[in-house]
Nucleic acid binder design. Sequence first.
RNA 1: GUCCCCAUCGUCUAGUCCGGUCCAGGACACCGGCCUUUCACGCCGGCGACGCCGGUUCAAAUCCGGCUGGGGACGCCA
Length: 464
Amino acid sequence: MEPVITRFPPSPTGFLHIGGARTALFNWLFARHLGGKFILRIEDTDIERSTEASVKAILDAMEWLGLTWDEGPYYQTKRLDIYAEYAKKLTDTGHAYWCECTPEELETRRKAAMAQGRKPKYEGTCRNLGLGPGTNRVLRFRTPESGETILRDLIKGPIFFDNSELDDLVLVRSDGIPTYNFAVVIDDLTMDVTHIIRGDDHVNNTPRQMQIYLALGAKMPEFGHVPMIHGEDRSPLSKRHGATSVMEYKELGFLPEALVNYLVRLGWSHGDQEIFSRAELIEEFTLEHVGKSPSVFNMEKLLWLNAHYIKEKQPEELIAPLKPFLTARGYLEKDDSYIAGAIRTLQPRSRTLVEMADAMRFYMIDEVDYDEAAVQKFLTHEMRDVFERVLPELQNLDDFNEANLEAVFKKVTGELNMKLGKIAQPIRVALTGVTVSPGLFEIIDVLGKETVLKRMRRAMGRMG
RNA sequence: GUCCCCAUCGUCUAGUCCGGUCCAGGACACCGGCCUUUCACGCCGGCGACGCCGGUUCAAAUCCGGCUGGGGACGCCA
């Protein structure tokens, strides 16, 4: 059996967005599942809008998601001679012809056609003029005027197109640069791509591309068109729906495995399973279970998955991804074991690394900032006695583990005939400045004796 | 406008190919409860959908047709 080769061909005109990332992921998984190859190709034939920065941004995002490629990145602008060769082949065989219609004329005719309710397509003005190459001339494909092109889509099933609906698309621009529809075909052809998995929005391009394969006598690849991702209002996902760039999600504190897991389930399923490790995805991913209908991006579920992965990781694994967020907040330098301890207490209560970093504040600064309402409510005069009792007990405790701490508090509350609930909040406020935090004993354990005593004494200063 | 695609809970989806096991299952969100030193986590329970109309059939979420709704494409963008 021939080896499977898939590819992801972003155009470097912006960042890698969510939809593109899912397409890349599907291609990557498809290839990995079948033990094939995954190629990365930069489609930079839009000279005007392509930028180096975009290429970098896209590559960074691919790496962050762990979508490793086996070949490339190839750049179309470095393959111009190849396209020229095939363009010549098509002209020589009469499958392509030169056209001198100007963009302005075309635009006028398009508008007129729309106004009259006709499908705006190139009328073939230059089709039989026998023009040769020249300035301001484009090379067009001579599309068959009759017949039918059948796309047997791996995801959507058979789709029929009347060739009369297709028009003579431009293959080579007047500046000699090939257009997308031409370059993709030649690239996929010469790179031996066997399976083209791409967005739904390419369905209508497919019959045109198939005609080029046919004209070239080339082997036709398989096509699979994945439905689009929409926003809450069912319109295509865009900025106004929130973050659309993959790297924005990194900045929002998402873990790549959460995004990958979320994205793969947008359109694909494996029974009732929601959580997939990368190995499981590679094992289970097939196109058969990719749905046909568009899906809506739902931040809540992504958040849930992210929370899941945050909980599941070892605290140590979270240190590196969390560090940038800590630094950004100007926190003190702490060593990794301390940070890991703090992370452990926040894992069950953080949905993102941003939330975690924010909640970590009291661990990371010297003097906690008190929430005044909390101080008023809990650092009351009557707590002074309680603190006086607790302080020496803690002072004498050598091993600050949770069990010991619990014993100490049991003892004190017993002697004072108070419930733990009564004194927990005041101590929490003393240690964190706020009323919401991880468990008291966990905090004490992480903070350590010196800090705990210091903060409790300082808090006593705020008691009436 | 023309062509193409799609249609199960608010959202992601299972089930649809091979009609009965589905008075439709899971997950997120939401609501309630339990746990509890706060907040979470966790656990238990609840709410909630086959777009509409017709046909085929003993039987339709599943097959067929129409309608409606949504989306995509119509570039010397990709």
